[in-house]
Design a protein around this nucleic acid. Structure first.
Length: 569
RNA sequence: CGGGGUGUGGCGCAGCCUGGCUAGCGCACCUGCUUUGGGAGCAGGGGGUCGGAGGUUCAAAUCCUCUCACCCCGACCA
């Protein structure tokens, strides 16, 4: 395409409200424009990239037997009431009312709709398994949209759903999905990790996230430096600590005045002990009231782990006002000894002796606390968040590393959660009715593109992996209005087109520097520079965006090597 | 939802505290001349309800009240 005919509004300066690099560059490169919080217009150049991502996803979904379809973006409330999510989903679900006062929502995900269709069309185990998918606009009324298309409210998502007659079948599909997702993100040129993820109430280890490693990621990924164990930090298991031989004569419980010393650091300094000798007591609130979580002083409590251990519906830090009104103990001095609520202890705490805790009264702490003797613990488990350097739970000698990640894909097995409540039943070979077993699998299309930029950019702009680039090559004449250069440029443009290369011809009457800057900002993998001196010698210049290395090639025959060059980008 | 911040041509900003004359600067845009292998120079030009509403005042971008939008920091998610 001819650059002068396209709408590519590039900017020299970043918009003030763009925080992360991918957002800045997508705006500067003329790919997107913001319309409202978390709502973006996708401009032609941006759409070309999204279509590339979509096409890769399509090919990988089709390869494992996925069937593409397109579901309504605005489903009626009844389906959601039937599944129970009309109430459960909360404010993130954008609710709409039509002229007849009927309720609808803008679909944030489509389990209900697809389950409704499948239950009407599938009656026999012979029709299973099925894998259905769509690529469609979703809307989630996020509390805090940010980072451009990385966390928009309106966004494009590939969502897939599978239906099975038995567990083995869904597990097999799950493995296919892992492969398809790995292929997809590899083909997008991304450095990613497949990690175990919290599967919430569904249980089992059947949930994986695909994380693109990038400093701007909103999630943390913990992975072993030796074996292949990797997990979202929310779920990353810690190694069970070795038992510690108790001292022959344990210290007695002693109440020590610690005026004004609230934090672990303050108490440790004041009592001249290490943070590892202190036990932190964190008060949380769930549907049944207050509970306490215990972790070592140098650890952070992992809320997801504790929630899973308790098995409650929700769990959050209790506000200080609530704690004080219920317990009459000021924050900073709470401890597990004779605390009037259920106490859950991290397994590291269980092997401690002679430790320090709050004394449940203002300006005082206990020393010489003994786990067995002094505490009444409801349950113990792995409750702390792992840190860089912690031992790997799966292999000997391995150490955890922790990095930031962007969640671009998530797969999990749903089981019969929707099929049971929505009565999606099939008849098995005994003629018996069973709920179908389901899996669901999502990829954020725009987020994948943004993640690609986070991983592939430099101070000049985007450096697209060739498979995602809006154009694979750009022909840059030094002066387009000079006859010989124009003819050579157009010939190069045609030749590349014949070779199946998507090419941009920069025919604008701009100075060369401007054309270079734009080509670099846009991140087009290969530049073909056509100038008078090189033409005299029958040559043109081929320059790589990524390496900045340029070489002279014969014109026009040398153009034939370009498809091969692109293979390696 | 809590806490903080910002709204001034398409983009980035100054002006506001201490009201005052035609609202200014850089980039971008239009015209002309010169220039032309790394974001050109000169000259001329177009474009702004100063987020919105109300108020104070002889006079409001500036002060007051209300309101809307957007951004940033904390619990959810592709």
């Amino acid at each position: 395409m001819y650059y002068s005919k396209l709408f590519i509004p590039t900017l020299k300066q970043s918009p003030a409200d763009a925080e992360v690099i991918s957002h800045q560059l997508m705006v500067r490169a003329g790919m997107i424009r913001q319309l409202a919080a978390g709502i973006y217009s996708i401009l032609p150049l941006g759409l070309r990239v999204l279509k590339k991502v979509e096409q890769i996803i399509r090919e990988e979904m089709n390869r494992i037997g996925g069937q593409e379809m397109f579901l309504p973006s605005i489903p009626p409330a009844e389906l959601w009431q039937e599944s129970g999510r009309w109430e459960l989903y909360g404010k993130e679900l954008l609710r709409l009312t039509d002229r007849h006062d009927r309720e609808f929502c803008y679909g944030p995900t489509h389990e209900e709709v697809i389950t409704d269709i499948i239950r009407g069309g599938v009656k026999s185990y012979r029709q299973l398994p099925l894998l259905m998918y769509q690529i469609q606009t979703k809307f989630r009324d996020e509390v805090r949209p940010r980072f451009g298309v990385m966390r928009g409210r309106e966004f494009t998502m590939k969502d897939a759903y599978s239906f099975h007659a038995d567990e083995a079948s869904v597990l097999e599909m799950y493995e296919h999905m892992k492969q398809a997702y790995s292929n997809t993100f590899s083909r997008c040129g991304l450095d990613f990790k497949m990690v175990e993820a919290d599967s919430g109430t569904i249980g089992g280890s059947f949930s994986h996230e695909f994380m693109v490693l990038a400093d701007s990621g909103e999630d943390a990924v913990a992975f072993c430096d030796t074996c292949d164990y990797a997990s979202n930090i929310e779920k990353a298991a810690s190694r069970t600590p070795d038992p510690v031989t108790p001292p022959k004569k344990p210290d007695p419980l002693k109440k020590i005045p610690t005026p004004g010393k609230k934090s672990v650091e303050e108490v440790a300094q004041f009592l001249k002990v290490s943070a590892r000798q202190i036990v932190k007591t964190i008060i949380l609130e769930n549907e049944n009231g207050l509970v306490a979580g215990l972790v070592r002083g140098d650890r952070q409590l992992n809320l997801v782990k504790l929630k899973n251990l308790i098995g409650c519906d929700w769990l959050q830090p209790a506000p200080e006002s609530l704690i004080v009104s219920k317990t009459n103990i000021p924050c900073g001095f709470i401890g597990p000894v004779e605390l009037d609520m259920k106490v859950y202890a991290d397994h590291e705490v269980a092997v401690m002796h002679n430790f320090v805790t709050g004394a449940n009264s203002k300006d005082a702490h206990y020393t010489g606390v003994q786990f067995e003797r002094d505490l009444n613990v409801a349950q113990m488990g792995d409750l702390h968040e792992v840190q860089e350097g912690d031992p790997c739970p799966k292999c000997d000698g391995g150490r955890y590393r922790v990095k930031r990640g962007i969640e671009v894909g998530h797969i999990f097995i749903l089981g019969t959660k929707y099929s049971a409540t929505m009565k999606a039943f099939y008849l098995d070979d005994q003629g018996k009715e069973n709920p179908m077993i389901m899996g669901c699998y999502g990829i954020g299309v725009g987020r994948t593109a943004a993640a690609a930029i986070e991983q592939n950019h430099d101070d000049k702009g985007i450096v697209w992996p060739a498979p995602l680039a809006p154009f694979q090559a750009v022909v840059i004449p030094v002066k387009f209005d000079e006859d010989r250069q124009r003819q050579a440029s157009e010939e190069a443009y045609r030749t590349l087109g014949d070779l199946g290369i998507e090419t941009l011809l920069d025919d604008r009457p701009e100075r060369l520097g401007v054309k270079f800057k734009d080509a670099e900002l846009l991140g087009i993998p290969l530049q073909i520079i056509i100038g008078p001196k090189n033409l005299d010698a029958g040559k043109i210049e081929l320059k790589s965006r990524k390496t900045g290395v340029s070489e002279l090639i014969d014109f026009p025959d040398g153009l034939q090597i370009i498809p091969e060059r692109l293979q390696n980008l």
